[in-house]
Design a protein around this nucleic acid. Sequence first.
DNA 1: TTAAACTTTCAGTAATTTTTGAAACTTTAA
DNA 2: TTAAAGTTTCAAAAATTACTGAAAGTTTAA
Lengths: 167, 167
Amino acid sequence: MNYTEAKEKFISTWGALGTLWGINKAMAQIHALLWISPEPLSMEDIMEELHISRGNTSMNLRQLMDWGIVFKESKPGERKEYFASEKDVQELARQVAKERSRREIKPVIKVLREVSGIEGDGTKKTEELIKQTKALYELADNADTMMNKIVNQESNWITKTLMKLIK
Amino acid sequence: MNYTEAKEKFISTWGALGTLWGINKAMAQIHALLWISPEPLSMEDIMEELHISRGNTSMNLRQLMDWGIVFKESKPGERKEYFASEKDVQELARQVAKERSRREIKPVIKVLREVSGIEGDGTKKTEELIKQTKALYELADNADTMMNKIVNQESNWITKTLMKLIK
DNA sequence: TTAAACTTTCAGTAATTTTTGAAACTTTAA
DNA sequence: TTAAAGTTTCAAAAATTACTGAAAGTTTAA
């Protein structure tokens, strides 16, 4: 496998994984491209490399910036803007975990708390609803707490500590 | 919030979360419905409750069974088949983690190993590709190993051990 | 066997999500 | 200022994904 084949395989695999996890393909592929690029890239560069339109590129770059894993860079003396990826894998993981927690997990936890907190009326179906949503609430809340602890440690705490524990 | 409101809120929230994580809404909602149902439900019950077609119900029940989190039950003396959810939250988490690892993470790890294993040619871009995909490979491989260890422990190892460690 | 009860499959349709491309907007250098 | 260089927005089109419903398939009881 040569450079070009490897690059294409990586970009398309990353795009496919994204899709499976609810992230759109273009967004994941732009990230993949920037992740392996030694230099920041312009919008033109990205459009050309991935064969996607200007609008698509712009919208997805904005999302990647909202996620905090891609940054705008301006080269001195140039009008054009360049885009660069966060390059540290631990920081990438932390950022993704943090954002998914904030946007997706926390709101669900809130609903689970509300739902599992309704008053029992003695019927079997109500008892089951309370019991089962409470269990889910506790799981989600523990997992989220854990994730946030991990995410707020220095970068490779997770690898160092957990691997020792588990191996 | 009364029983019906709580049930509907739970089902729709669970469906929305599924969507965000690449699981289709009907599948997530069927799971939610069975999760809180004190008794196994028939296909008719599910169709009626969620207002979805027979075909849709059948296909998504099959998928839930493939994931190992819903089971077919036949009541003695009845022709109809009934469906019941795995009820233990720890077992649910283990099963989901196990399947996502097998279907989605493992194949990506394989690609990352291949891609990061190409021979360097001294160019900057090739070095960067190798370095960055290797970092991702190591992260994914560690995370996956960890997940599988957790998943293969007795059910609440994760809660017991990790929470102690982290709190 | 057969026919009733029930489930699965799948081609066509519907709904949703993504992408495009051109117009509107913004910034900067002269 | 102004116009060139660049970016963003968004309505419409394309692509993808999910859903329906009816036909085909399966199972069971008589």
